[in-house]
């Protein structure tokens, strides 16, 4: 299970563009490496990231094998209303990692 860290400002003014940082602990195995025994380490990456703001998709991404171990991402969104941001990461093994952040918009 991946550990997820997200930094969202707890409060913002309406209309303000806020910075969001995310960091997920994940090996992002690219499928090109061998282990000690010479066996191929199979590809295992997070391939999809989605962000919903009160149920509406505001940002998403497709990731490939050239994204570093423990993927880090900074992106932006407009603080439109008080509510919650839902983050979802999908990996090759079908696991979904989630995080929810609350934001108060004044």
């Amino acid at each position: 299970m991946a550990e997820v860290r997200v930094a969202v400002p707890p409060t913002a003014r309406k209309g303000e563009v806020i910075e969001i940082k995310t960091l997920v602990s994940h090996p992002m195995d690219n499928g090109f490496l061998l282990d000690y025994g010479g066996r191929m380490i199979p590809r295992w990456i997070i391939n999809r990231f989605e962000v919903e703001y009160n149920g509406e998709m505001v940002f998403s991404a497709d990731w490939h094998v050239s994204i570093s171990t423990n993927p880090y991402l900074i992106f932006y969104t407009v603080a439109t209303e008080t509510g919650q941001l839902d983050f979802k990461w999908y990996d090759d093994n079908g696991e979904i990692y989630t995080h929810t952040a609350e934001i108060t918009v004044t």
């Binding site: 509406e56 998403s60 094998v65 969104t77 407009v78």
Partner: peptide
């Protein structure tokens, strides 16, 4: 990328609600 094992790195899909067309990440 030109010389990685695969050329694909990432694709980011934005909306007007992003407010700013910018992403920062770390790549191999």
């Amino acid at each position: 990328t030109e010389l990685n094992p695969q050329p694909y790195v990432a694709d980011y899909y934005l909306t007007p609600r992003c407010g700013k067309a910018e992403i920062t990440t770390r790549i191999r």
